[in-house]
């Protein structure tokens, strides 16, 4: 159908561009890596933090990495107005939102694959205790964050302050998600699955912010 065809074309295009401009990905990743090392340095390496602070820092790091992705993708779409072509797609305009979510998700996920193990080594966090739950919470948390971010970048599309506004909106709006992710992650690091209610918060965020923009998108996707 139209929707899926357009969606995959858009994601495919994003991946192709991402692949071609590897140096951008690498530079973003380098910066995130630098942050990890700096954290290790100022916190004096392993074992000095509670599991809680450990999880909190990890998620802040991931969200920073996510912000990179958002800003970069925005720049790329903005080159000679390609972003406006999305208002002409012969299907529901929310396709742009979903394509963005998928592309960001892939981008951030690849970064996480490098960042998370490194983080655990540098800061002495024993992530290997439970790979399965860790991956699950990383995935769910990232989906929620990326969905909020994709929606906000579309909202701030024509704003002259968008570079500063997107972070200003994204962090307050995703506080519950951040709390939930940190809570669950710290529980996992201590060897249990954590409270169900936090999993529910993360899940609710994923559902809410994947669904709502889809419904409201036609109001905001225009020039």
């Amino acid at each position: 159908m139209n929707f899926w065809r357009v969606l995959w074309s858009m994601v495919g295009k994003d991946l192709r561009i991402e692949w071609r401009t590897k140096q951008l990905f690498i530079s973003s990743l380098s910066f995130a890596l630098l942050l990890v090392f700096l954290m290790g340095l100022v916190l004096y390496g392993s074992g000095n933090m509670t599991r809680f602070a450990d999880a909190g820092l990890l998620w802040l790091l991931i969200m920073m990495a996510g912000l990179f992705s958002l800003n970069r993708q925005d720049d790329k779409e903005r080159w000679d107005g390609a972003i406006y072509a999305a208002t002409l797609v012969p299907t529901d305009r929310s396709v742009l939102f979903y394509a963005r979510v998928i592309s960001h998700l892939l981008f951030v996920a690849v970064m996480e694959i490098v960042l998370v193990p490194l983080y655990s080594v540098v800061l002495g966090t024993s992530i290997q205790v439970a790979w399965g739950p860790i991956i699950l919470v990383l995935l769910m948390g990232t989906i929620g964050f990326v969905a909020v971010g994709a929606m906000l970048t579309s909202l701030a599309l024509t704003s002259s302050l968008r570079e500063i506004l997107v972070p200003l909106m994204i962090f307050p709006l995703s506080v519950p998600l951040l709390l939930g992710a940190v809570e669950v992650t710290s529980s996992i690091l201590q060897g249990n699955w954590g409270k169900g209610v936090w999993w529910a918060v993360i899940g609710a965020y994923d559902v809410l912010f994947l669904g709502l923009p889809g419904l409201l998108y036609d109001f905001i996707a225009e020039v």
């Binding site: 139209n2 295009k13 192709r16 561009i17 071609r20 401009t21 790329k76 080159w79 000679d80 107005g81 390609a82 406006y84 072509a85 002409l88 797609v89 012969p90 299907t91 529901d92 305009r93």
Partner: peptide, 21 residues
């Protein structure tokens, strides 16, 4: 409507092209 958008074409001063493709 979305369906009808397939039957129009638009050329503005921005080219709508991707520089990296």
């Amino acid at each position: 409507s979305p369906r009808l958008r397939a039957r129009i074409g638009v050329l503005l001063d921005a080219s709508f092209l991707y520089g990296e493709l």
